[in-house]
């Protein structure tokens, strides 16, 4: 197998090239995973060097859109980490249902598995009609794909197993079915979802949210950017609003932000005023 190992100077040139091409700032991503993904992309698309790759990003807007899509790491499974979803239902939903018209945000919805999982759980908790759900992503293609509700059939096994562990009110087939070698998700769920093409870093968010679901996205940023993003999230939350991170993520490095721990293992936090 052919392989490319980018030098740090080439890596930086590419990051600058991405910014020049589309105004998207990749400079504070976790270095090793971003570098690896760039290298793999260059190999699979047979670019001979960084300059050729950069030139293509800059000269071809369609390619750039595809590039943003390819660089956004998909969420892995529907209802990934089933214990987390049970905790969300028990600890967060029980508080949301007491609010007037709660607002929920997924700042980087990526391939949308967490979004659909959330919507199903809301529906089965009789909350879907009472909440406003907003989902953002930097890749327009990601959002278009979510709106079609088509997923790889490979994901059906994990989806079914996870679903049946959490949802007992309706069968799996209420929301998922198999068609033409795809796993199709019931797109009625997203009817009222507000989609916006933007990332958390540069995006504009108005008003306050009662719950922000931000799982397994912070991991792609370096510690400095994580701090900035978490500060932004903190300021976007209602007082005593809730935040979910991925099970492998934590707020340890950012102790200046006042959150209380709601569920230590499932990484649910609550904004605290003191």
């Amino acid at each position: 197998m052919n392989s490319i190992k980018l030098k740090i100077s080439e890596y930086k040139n590419i990051i600058q090239g991405i910014f020049d091409a589309g105004g998207v700032d990749f400079s504070e991503y976790s270095l090793c995973s971003m570098k690896r993904r760039l290298e793999q992309k260059m190999v699979s698309e047979k670019f001979s060097d960084a300059d050729e790759f950069i030139a293509n990003l800059k000269s071809n807007p369609k390619y750039f859109e595809q590039f943003l899509f390819d660089m956004s790491v998909p969420v892995t499974d529907f209802f990934r980490d089933t214990d987390t979803w049970k905790a969300i239902r028990n600890q967060v939903f029980s508080k949301l249902e007491k609010k007037e018209s709660p607002r929920i945000l997924i700042p980087e919805c990526s391939s949308g598995e967490d979004l659909y999982s959330l919507l199903i759980l809301l529906k089965e908790s009789n909350l879907l009609d009472f909440v406003e759900v907003e989902a953002c992503d930097i890749s327009k293609k990601n959002i278009e794909k979510i709106q079609k509700g088509l997923y790889t059939l490979k994901s059906i096994e994990a989806a079914g197993r996870n679903y049946n562990e959490i949802i007992t009110t309706m069968p799996f087939t209420e929301y998922f079915y198999e068609k033409n070698n795809d796993l199709v998700v019931n797109t009625n769920l997203i009817e009222k979802v507000i989609f916006r093409v933007q990332n958390l870093q540069a995006g504009v968010f108005e008003g306050y949210y009662d719950y922000i679901l931000y799982r397994n996205r912070l991991i792609y940023y370096n510690p400095q950017m994580q701090s900035k993003l978490l500060r932004k999230i903190y300021n976007m939350l209602h007082k005593s609003g809730y935040l979910s991170l991925g099970v492998g993520e934590n707020l340890n490095l950012h102790s200046d932000l006042k959150f209380t721990v709601v569920d230590k293992n499932e990484k649910i936090f609550k904004k605290s005023r003191f």
Binding site: C32, S33, P74
Partner: peptide, 27 residues
């Protein structure tokens, strides 16, 4: 390495996790 994550070792002596697709059928 935790279940269902890839584990990177970054310059600066710390870990990064990732949910990128499986490599060699493994994550």
């Amino acid at each position: 390495t935790p279940a269902n994550y890839h584990l990177y070792i970054e310059l600066g002596n710390y870990f990064s996790l990732s949910t990128e697709e499986s490599v060699n059928h493994s994550r």
